[in-house]
Design a protein around this nucleic acid. Structure first.
Length: 825
RNA sequence: GCGGGCGUGGCGGAAAGGCAGACGCGCUAGACUUAGGAUCUAGUGGGAUAUCCCGUGUGGGUUCAAAUCCCACCGCCCGCACCA
C-alpha cells in the first residue's frame, strides 16, 4: 500500500501530530536525571542557513538520543533578536520597522525549524527583543550597577564608522570591525563598562574545571585573558610626576637605559613643556593618533620613536635616563609606559640600536666569563651583574628579591597584569535594550528603580540615516522625572551590546514566563549547568567568555548555584561549498529551502550528520545528499517489503538461534552497541550512520532468503533496531514506518534499544598471521583461543611452515582475537 | 613571531599502536526497463599478475608491529599578535 517514500506528506503529517500531541514539551521537574541540551540561539537574520541546520541537527540528535536513554531533557530554542541588521534593513527598505522586520524573520525561521523536525519545547521560546525578556536584561544590569560591576568611564574606545557605534575589544578583529570589516578608529568617549577584569583570575583558573571543552577554545580564552606576572615600578620625572611601568622582568631594572611612553600617555604634554623638542613631539604624537588602528598595530609597522628632551630617574640606582615616545608602546596595555632594557629584550635592543641608545648588560649567562659584546638581546637565565646589591644573584631569584626591595622602599610592587579589558557595553544604536539609567542635574547618575522596569524601547521611531540614533530625538523617551528628586531628567539613550542579552538566555529558558524574576532560582538550580552546548567556534571568546563572567557574578550574588554555565562544549565546523565558506558574494550558497523541497528534512539531517564528524568543516555535496536520500528510500522499501512477513512476529527472537539467524541477530546487537558508543562517548554521528547502513545492507540480503531459512522475529528485531537507532537522525520516516509496523505510540517516546551482551559475542574470529609484520595467512579460530594455542596453530599452517622453513624464529607475538606475528631472521 | 589544529583512493571520510581505505559518493561492467539521472548484481588505491611488491605530506626514530607515539622539515587552516 505504501508504494513510495512520499517525504513531503510524511513530514507534514508527523509535524502536525507532534504539535497536536505536544510531545516535546518538558515539565519543569522529573524523577529522571536531568539533561540540558543547548544550541546557540540564532540571530533572526531572515532565513535559516546551512550553518544553522548543522548546529541544530547535531543538537537534535543529542537531545533525542538522551531522551531515549532515559534522561529528562530540556531542549529549548529562542532568538538573539536585538542588533544592527534590523536597523540597517529598516533604513534600506524604508517601510519596515526593526520591530516588524525582526518578528517577521522570527516567524519565518521558527516555521523552518519546525519543518526540520527539531524537538524543541516551543513553550520555552524566548526573544531578547521582547519586553518580557529585556526587562530582565535591564534588571541584571541594575544588579551589576548596584554591586559596582557596571560603571561609566571615559576611555579611548573602538569606534566603527560604518556601524556608527563603539565596539568591545572582543568585537575587533585585526583592527577591523568584526561585523562589517571596516577599520576601527579610536575615540575618547564616556561609555558604560562591565568590570569583567575583576573576574580575570577566576575566568582563567576555572578553565581547568571545563574538562568537557575543546582545548582550542580554552587556549583562546587563556590567551585573551593574557595573564602576566611581574611588577610595577615607579620612575620619577623631573617634573616630580611618577611614571609607572609594568614589567615582567624586574630583575633587569638595573639595565634600564631609557624610558618610552605611549603617544597618548597623559604625562607627555607636561613633560615636553619648555623643551626645545616640544613641537616635534607634538607633531609626532598627532601623526600616530591619526593612523588607523590597523596601520598602527600591524606587526610590520616600523618602530618609530622620538626623544622628548625629558628625563626620569631609575629608582633603584638613581640614574637619569632619557624619556622617549614611540609608536610601539600601547596605552591600552599595562601602564602605557615601558622601561627600556635593550640588553635583555629583543625589541628594546633593536630600538636602542636604531636610536643609538646605550645598552647595559645586567644578566650574564652562567657559561659566560667576563665582558662580551651583545649581538642581540640575551633573554635567557643567568646571574645578575651591574646590579648593585644584587650582583651574583641568579636572575630567577632576583625577580622576587627586586620586588621585595621595591616594596620595602615604596618604589613599586609585585603586580599581575592582564590583557583583558573591561567590557564596553554601550551602543549608540536604537535596536537594543535601553540602559536603565537616568541623568539628573541635581542627583547625577541615577539607576531606574526596579519597579519601573522595563524601560520600554519606543517602537514609533523614524530611522533615517546611519549614525543617528532615533532615541536621541525622541522626546517622549528622553525626558522623564528623576526617581530621587522628581525633577525633569534625561534618560540614557545608548542601548546595550547584544552580547549582554545573550549572556543569560539559557537561564531564562528554565522559567521563560516568570514575571517576578529573571529566572526562578530553584528551576535554574535544577537545570543548570548546561550539559551539552553546541555552536560555532566564532564565539570562543565573545559569547562564551561573557556568559562565564555573568554566571560567576550572579553566582557570587547568590542567584545561581553553578559558577560555570556550560559543562561540555562542542564547536561544530563550518559548512563549505567548493572548498570555501558559503556566501552570497561567492554565489555558492545552498539554500535549506531547496533541499527541504527536493529531499525533505530527514535527508538534509542525514547528510549533515553523515558527511563529516561534527567538529570538522563539512563540504556540501549535492551528490552525497542524493546518496542519503537513496538510503532513506532503501529503508522505506526494506520495511514496506517485509511488512507481511514480520506482522505477527515478536520483537525479539525466542529460543536458541543458529546459522544465519544467529549471525543477523548478532550484527543487529553489535550495531546497537556501536551506535550507542558513537553517540554517547564521542559525537561520531557519521560512523553511527554508517553502522546502521551496514545493518540495512545485511537485512536486505537476509530478507531475500527463503522464508523457511529465516526467523521472522530476527527480521522484525532488525527492522525495529534500524528505526529506533535512526529515530534521532531521521525523526519523520522512522515515525511513519514505526506506525506502519503496528505501533500506535510515537517512536520518539520509545526507550533506546539496548544491546544484549550475550548476543554480540562471536564464537569464531579471523586471526591474522604475520611474518615480520606482513600478513601471510589468516585463520578462523574460536574466540577464546589462548595466546599459546594461537602460536601453535599459526606455526602449523602449511603456508607458514613453508615460509619459515629453515629460519630462526626470534620472537613470537600473539594477540588474542587479532593476530600472530612471527619474527624470523 | 607565538599558540592550536590538520595533511589517508578520483571525492567526503573510516581505522582510539595490531588486516589501511569501513560506510557513502563517483566510476566500470552487467540485469531489469519504452526510457531513465529509478532499482538490483558484481568490481573499483597503484604496479606487475594466481603470488607478490609499493602505498596514509617529506625525512629520521621508538616498537615484534606506526596513518596512529617521538624528533625535524614542508604545506594548508584557525586564533592571537609591537603584550613590555
Amino acid at each position: 500500500m505504501k508504494e513510495y517514500y512520499n517525504f513531503k506528506e510524511i513530514e507534514k503529517e508527523c509535524q502536525e501530530r507532534w504539535e497536536a500531541e505536544d510531545i516535546y514539551s518538558i515539565p519543569d521537574y522529573s524523577d529522571k536525571p536531568k539533561y540540558y541540551c543547548l544550541e546557540m540561539f540564532p540571530y533572526p537574520s531572515g532565513k535559516l542557513h546551512m550553518g544553522h541546520l548543522r548546529n541544530y541537527s547535531i543538537g537534535d540528535v543529542v537531545a533525542r538520543f538522551n531522551t531515549m536513554q532515559g534522561y529528562h531533557v530540556i531542549h529549548p530554542m529562542g532568538w538573539d533578536a536585538f542588533g544592527l541588521p534590523a536597523e540597517n534593513a529598516a533604513m534600506k527598505h524604508g517601510a519596515e520597522s526593526p520591530y516588524q522586520w525582526t518578528w517577521d524573520n522570527i516567524n519565518a525561521m521558527r516555521s523552518q525549524l519546525k519543518q526540520m523536525g527539531f524537538s524543541y519545547d516551543w513553550n520555552r521560546e524566548v526573544a531578547t527583543c521582547h519586553p518580557g525578556y529585556y526587562k530582565w536584561s535591564q534588571w541584571l544590569f541594575l544588579q551589576l550597577y548596584k554591586n559596582g560591576f557596571a560603571y561609566k568611564g571615559k576611555a579611548a574606545v573602538n569606534w566603527c564608522p560604518s556601524c556608527a557605534t563603539v565596539l568591545a575589544n572582543e568585537q575587533v578583529k585585526e583592527g577591523c570591525c568584526e561585523r562589517c570589516d571596516t577599520p576601527v578608529e579610536r575615540r575618547d568617549l564616556e561609555q558604560w563598562f562591565l568590570k569583567i577584569t575583576d573576574y580575570a583570575e577566576r575566568l582563567l583558573n576555572d578553565l581547568d574545571k571545563l574538562t568537557g571543552w575543546p582545548d582550542k577554545v580554552k587556549t583562546m580564552q587563556e590567551n585573551w585573558i593574557g595573564r602576566s606576572e611581574g611588577s610595577e615600578i615607579k620612575f620619577e620625572a623631573e617634573t616630580g610626576d611618577e611614571i609607572t611601568v609594568f614589567t615582567t622582568r624586574p630583575d633587569t631594572v638595573y639595565g634600564v637605559t631609557y624610558m618610552v611612553l605611549a603617544p597618548e600617555h597623559p604625562l607627555v604634554g607636561k613633560l615636553i613643556q619648555d623643551k626645545p623638542e616640544a613641537e616635534k613631539v607634538r607633531a609626532f604624537v598627532e601623526k600616530i593618533r591619526n593612523l588607523s588602528e590597523m596601520a598602527r598595530t600591524s606587526g610590520e609597522a616600523e618602530k618609530e620613536g622620538l626623544v622628548t628632551g625629558a628625563y626620569c630617574t631609575n629608582p633603584v640606582n638613581g640614574e637619569k635616563v632619557p624619556v622617549l615616545v614611540a609608536n610601539y608602546v600601547l596605552m591600552e596595555y599595562g601602564t602605557g609606559a615601558v622601561m627600556g632594557v635593550p640588553a635583555h629584550d629583543q625589541r628594546d635592543f633593536e630600538f636602542a640600536t636604531k636610536y643609538n641608545l646605550s645598552i647595559r648588560e645586567v644578566i650574564r649567562p652562567k657559561s659566560q666569563e667576563g665582558d662580551y659584546e651583545l649581538k642581540e638581546a640575551y633573554t635567557g637565565e643567568g646571574v645578575m651583574v651591574n646590579s648593585g646589591p644584587f650582583n651574583g644573584v641568579p636572575n630567577q631569584e632576583g625577580i622576587s628579591k627586586v620586588i621585595k626591595y621595591l616594596e620595602d622602599n615604596n618604589l613599586g610592587k609585585g603586580h599581575v597584569n592582564y590583557r583583558l579589558r573591561d567590557w564596553l557595553i554601550s551602543r549608540q544604536r536604537y535596536w537594543g535594550a535601553p540602559i536603565p539609567i537616568i541623568y539628573c542635574d541635581h542627583c547625577g547618575t541615577v539607576p531606574v528603580p526596579e519597579e519601573d522596569l522595563p524601560v520600554v524601547l519606543p517602537l514609533d521611531v523614524q530611522l533615517e540615516q546611519v549614525g543617528k540614533n532615533p532615541l536621541n530625538s525622541n522626546e517622549d523617551f528622553i525626558y522623564t522625572t528623576c526617581p530621587v528628586c522628581g525633577a525633569r531628567a534625561r534618560r540614557e539613550t545608548d542601548t546595550m551590546d547584544t552580547f549582554v542579552c545573550s549572556s543569560w538566555y539559557y537561564y531564562r529558558y528554565t522559567s521563560p514566563r516568570d514575571e517576578k524574576n529573571a529566572w526562578d532560582q530553584d528551576k535554574a538550580a535544577y537545570w543548570l549547568p548546561v550539559d551539552q552546548y553546541i555552536g560555532g567556534v566564532e564565539h570562543a571568546i565573545l559569547h562564551l567568555l561573557y556568559s562565564r563572567f555573568f554566571t560567576k557574578v550572579f553566582y557570587d550574588m547568590g542567584y545561581l548555584k553553578n559558577d560555570e554555565p556550560f559543562m561540555n562544549l562542542l564547536t561544530q565546523g563550518m559548512v563549505l561549498k567548493d572548498g570555501t565558506k558559503m556566501s552570497k558574494s561567492k554565489g555558492n550558497v545552498v539554500s535549506p529551502e531547496d533541499i527541504l523541497d527536493r529531499y525533505g528534512a530527514d535527508t538534509a539531517r542525514m547528510f549533515i550528520l553523515f558527511a563529516a564528524p561534527p567538529e570538522r568543516d563539512l563540504e556540501w555535496s549535492d551528490r552525497a545528499v542524493e546518496g542519503c536520500h537513496r538510503f532513506l528510500k532503501r529503508i522505506w522499501r526494506l520495511v514496506t517489503s517485509v511488512e507481511e512477513s514480520i506482522e505477527n512476529a515478536p520483537s525479539s527472537p525466542q529460543g536458541e538461534l543458529t546459522g544465519v539467524n544467529k549471525e543477523i541477530h548478532r550484527i543487529n546487537h553489535q550495531t546497537r552497541k556501536k551506535v550507542k558508543d558513537d553517540l554517547s562517548q564521542r559525537f561520531n554521528f557519521n560512523t553511527a550512520v554508517s553502522a546502521v547502513m551496514e545493518l540495512v545492507n545485511s537485512l536486505n540480503q537476509f530478507k531475500d532468503l527463503p522464508e523457511s531459512d529465516r526467523d521472522h522475529a530476527v527480521l522484525r528485531e532488525g527492522v525495529e533496531t534500524v528505526l529506533l537507532l535512526l529515530a534521532p537522525f531521521a525523526p519523520h520516516i522512522t515515525e511513519e514506518l514505526w506506525k506502519y509496523i503496528g505501533y500506535d505510540e510515537s517512536i520518539h517516546r520509545q526507550p533506546w534499544p539496548d544491546y544484549d551482551q550475550a548476543a554480540i559475542v562471536e564464537e569464531e574470529v579471523t586471526v591474522v598471521v604475520q611474518i615480520n609484520g606482513k600478513v601471510r595467512e589468516k585463520m578462523l579460530v574460536p574466540v577464546d583461543t589462548s595466546q599459546e594455542a594461537l602460536k601453535e596453530k599459526a606455526l602449523e599452517l602449511p603456508k607458514i611452515k613453508e615460509l619459515t622453513e629453515g629460519k630462526n624464529i626470534a620472537k613470537l607475538i600473539a594477540v588474542p582475537k587479532k593476530l600472530v606475528n612471527i619474527v624470523v631472521k
